Each structure stands twice: as structure tokens, then as C-alpha cells.
Amino acid sequence: MNRECIEACQKCATECEQCLDAMIDIDSNNDCPRCCRECIDVCLLCAQAMARDSRFADAICRLCADVCQWCAEQCGAHQHDHCQRCAESCRKCVESCRAMAA
């Protein structure tokens, strides 16, 4: 289960990176792509914390789930393919991180 969550965080960070890059010259009416920047950082931190079995992994997973939920809502509001992929990856990360933090 830990491996699954690490992979979900890594995939989410990658999808957010691609969304962030694609949104550089596109006007946004919400927090996309700002949320992607936050999500990338917390997803990578979360994957690292789980990989080293950090005593704070549960707390970081909870934070990661919250940030990914916000990002999923923001990116999911856009019709761009990259935003939809990002939002889907964020939703999967939320599910996995919440299960780890339970």
C-alpha cells in the first residue's frame, strides 16, 4: 500500500508539472496553475517521507490529500486535456493519501 501511495504521489507531481507548463501562457479564472506548484512540492515531499518511513508521514499524507483536493477542484474546472489529466491524477492521490493517513 505504501508503494502504491508513493507512485500516486509521483504521478500526480508529474501531471501537475505538465499542467503548470501548459498553463504558462493561458489566462486562468481560478488558482490553476498556482495549485499545481503547491501540489508538486507536497507530493514529492510526501513520497520522500513515505519512502524513508518518516514519523511524520501520516501528517504529510493528510496535508498532501488536502492540497491535491484543492488542485483537483481548480484544474478540474478547466476543459484543457492537461488540466483534466492533472485533476484525475490529483483525485487518485487524494484517495491513496487518505487511506495511508487513516
Rank of each mutant, 00 (worst) to 15 (best):
E88D: 14
D41I: 04
D25E: 08
C16R: 01
C43E: 02
D25A: 14
Q10R: 11
C12P: 02
I60R: 02
R55Y: 10
Q69R: 15
D41N: 13
C19K: 01
C5S: 07
H78I: 02
I40V: 13
E88L: 10
A57L: 00
A8I: 02
R37Y: 10
R91D: 06
C36W: 03
M50Q: 01
M100G: 07
A8P: 04
G76A: 12
A22D: 13
D31C: 10
I60H: 03
C90N: 13
D66L: 11
E95D: 10
N2R: 06
I26K: 15
D58I: 03
A72L: 08
A13N: 00
L20N: 09
I6N: 02
L63W: 11
Q74Y: 11
A51Y: 01
C43A: 07
C35G: 13
A49R: 00
M100I: 05
D41S: 14
Q74A: 15
H78F: 09
C32N: 15
A77M: 11
E95Y: 06
H82A: 05
C35N: 13
R91P: 00
R3H: 12
C35M: 13
E15I: 05
C71T: 12
G76R: 05
E7K: 01
C83K: 10
E7S: 03
L45F: 03
R98G: 03
P33H: 03
C71V: 05
C83Q: 07
Q84G: 09
C12R: 01
A87N: 09
C43I: 00
C68L: 05
D81H: 12
D81A: 14
C86A: 05
A77F: 12
H82D: 11
C36S: 09
D21E: 15
I24S: 10
Q79E: 15
R3I: 08
C64G: 12
D53L: 09
E38A: 12
C75N: 10
C68W: 01
C12V: 04
D25V: 02
S96H: 09
N29Y: 14
A72G: 09
Q69P: 07
C9D: 02
C32H: 13
M50W: 01
Q84S: 05
Q10Y: 07
D27Y: 12
K92M: 10
I40H: 03
V67R: 07
C9R: 00
E4C: 00
M23H: 09
S89C: 08
C12E: 03
L44Y: 07
Q69E: 14
E73I: 14
W70G: 15
M23Y: 06
C16D: 04
I60N: 02
C19H: 04
I24T: 10
I24F: 06
E7Y: 03
C93L: 04
A65K: 06
E4M: 03
H78K: 10
M23G: 08
D66P: 09
S89D: 06
C86I: 12
R55W: 05
A57W: 00
A49I: 02
R98D: 02
